[in-house]
């Protein structure tokens, strides 16, 4: 695998994680538990989609076959999507949505902080922009973990249930393969062990304050990076890609 091939896949992965989570959060639009939270979720989604655009634009450029960000977002099928399974999981209740974002943010921040030091200038530039937004996301998703966990018996129970359900998807965030290895050797991608240790310490401190219990590390779901997704992604893409599939090349 050449560095160029690895870099293309690496950018796709970053773009796909952001795009899919962004779409999931966007599904809350008009359904939030209160107006402020409705707005907060779509604001998060907007930041994520902005980052996804940067990554997919760059992926297209690295690939060099003239594919645009829209081609990559709307014209790939589910087996060609490389996001982790965590982000495609359905929204569930509000605790479920927030726990999913918290786990994502707690991984995303140290990953992007490390990427600011990437030897690839464009990856470093995208990261230096994104870290500020992600730090803000992690602060607010962490606050919600504490509010749910250390709130009422009902909110505690729902947050713990969401954490127990979603924990099995957290391992994939740190899975490494040839793509990571090639780029790590070139100083482009960071050491995932360091990212994992930052994630563990954030999770530890937030869960302690939230009086929530960290689930045991048991079976971890994988396969998303290789395009083997849960059944949920196909339905989501069918909705997300409908317009471009039905009216190819439509613009507004």
């Amino acid at each position: 695998m050449t560095i160029q091939e690895a870099l293309f896949t690496y950018c796709l992965r970053r773009g796909d994680d952001n795009l899919i989570l962004s779409h999931r959060l966007g599904e809350w639009c008009g359904h939030g538990p209160q107006l402020e939270e409705d707005i907060a979720l779509t604001n998060r989604a907007l930041d994520l989609i902005g980052q996804a655009r940067n990554y997919l634009q760059y992926a297209g450029q690295v690939e060099g076959k003239g594919r645009s960000e829209d081609d990559l977002a709307y014209l790939r099928n589910e087996r060609q999507y490389t996001n982790v399974k965590l982000v495609e999981q359905p929204n569930g209740d509000y605790a479920h949505t927030m726990v999913r974002s918290f786990l994502f943010d707690a991984w995303h921040l140290p990953l992007q902080q490390a990427l600011t030091r990437s030897k690839d200038d464009q990856l470093a530039a995208i990261a230096s922009k994104a870290v500020k937004e992600i730090a803000y996301h992690l602060k607010t998703s962490g606050d919600w973990m504490i509010r749910f966990g250390d709130g009422t018996a009902e909110s505690h129970q729902r947050a713990q249930r969401a954490l127990d359900d979603l924990w099995t998807f957290s391992g994939e965030l740190f899975a490494t393969d040839d793509v990571e290895a090639v780029l790590f050797a070139a100083g482009i991608a960071p050491d995932m062990a360091a990212v994992k240790s930052a994630f563990d310490s954030t999770v530890q401190s937030v869960l302690t304050e939230a009086t929530l219990k960290r689930p045991m590390d048991a079976y971890m779901a994988t396969g998303g990076r290789q395009g083997k997704h849960s059944e949920h992604l196909g339905f989501m893409l069918a909705e997300m890609q409908y317009l471009q599939r039905a009216y190819p090349g439509a613009i507004w």
Partner: peptide, 13 residues
């Protein structure tokens, strides 16, 4: 602070 996010990406409520 009512909400960490507001009417546009740059604002809080």
């Amino acid at each position: 602070m009512v909400s960490a996010f507001g009417s546009t990406a740059c604002k809080a409520l």
